[in-house]
């Protein structure tokens, strides 16, 4: 990623997104997120949280406005440039996007394989991540055989496996118990402390209640800041 002059990782200026036929998901959203920041985005179901995250990794294109990641206009990113950008963005999708007929380790490895990491490094990293997320015994299990909570953790492991600079997490704790939620948040905070920019879309207030990070709310397609954050 390029060295952006003012260390802004995510920049949105007057971004709107309308789905066919005329569903307004986002309306004139403008926001800057600094490099190394951790931000919680909350809002009711259908408020546009997932759309917001999808715009940042070019899974969707804005109907209007500018989206920049580390100073690069996402609309202009194509081919290999887009691929290299995506290698720097880890996404934990709400619908998991797991390959259910593949093992847990294969699902996590895929993010590192596309960056041409050596197999021994991949194996080591997968093992470490599974230990961190309490999934060591699931290494060779098919992801289709796992519980929702376990699948959610595998998705998260895959998102962070490549040590990305920007981590987008969509509802990370929806299917987790309190202990596992704490474990997942501990990992995300650890990654943020190591310098990664982390954006978490959630409606679970328990995960942002006790932290001092910036809190945004999507309401009526617009972004509202509920709490100013403290950079760790």
């Amino acid at each position: 990623m390029s060295e952006h002059s003012n260390n802004t990782m995510v920049e949105l200026i007057k971004v709107s997104k309308t789905y066919h036929p005329n569903i307004q998901a986002l309306s004139g959203v403008s926001i800057s997120i600094r490099s190394g920041e951790m931000v919680f985005i909350t809002g009711r179901s259908g408020a546009g949280k997932t759309t917001f995250l999808k715009l940042l990794c070019k899974m969707e294109l804005p109907t209007r406005g500018l989206v920049e990641i580390d100073g690069l206009d996402i609309r202009k990113m194509r081919g290999n440039n887009l691929s290299y950008l995506r290698q720097q963005i880890g996404v934990a999708y709400q619908d998991f996007k797991l390959l259910t007929d593949r093992t847990v380790s294969e699902n996590i490895s895929i993010a590192m394989e596309v960056s041409y990491r050596k197999p021994q490094i991949i194996r080591k990293r997968v093992k470490a991540l599974l230990e961190e997320l309490d999934l060591s015994d699931k290494h060779n299990s098919m992801t289709g055989d796992l519980s929702r909570g376990e699948q959610q953790r595998v998705t998260l492991a895959r998102a962070v496996a490549n040590s990305p600079k920007l981590i987008l997490v969509d509802e990370p704790t929806g299917n987790l118990d309190a202990t596992t939620t704490a474990r997942v948040m501990e990992m995300l905070i650890g990654l943020n402390n190591s310098g990664a920019t982390v954006l978490i879309a959630t409606h679970d207030h328990t995960i942002y209640r006790d932290v001092e990070h910036r809190l945004l709310e999507l309401r009526g397609g617009q972004m509202h800041q509920l709490r100013d954050g403290v950079m760790q």
Binding site: N80, S83, L85, I89, L99, I110, R158
Partner: peptide, 16 residues
């Protein structure tokens, strides 16, 4: 299809 789509999303180049 699902695997190839995922590969694109995690940053696989077209050559890869």
């Amino acid at each position: 299809k699902a695997e190839l789509e995922l590969m694109k999303l995690v940053g696989a180049t077209n050559s890869y």
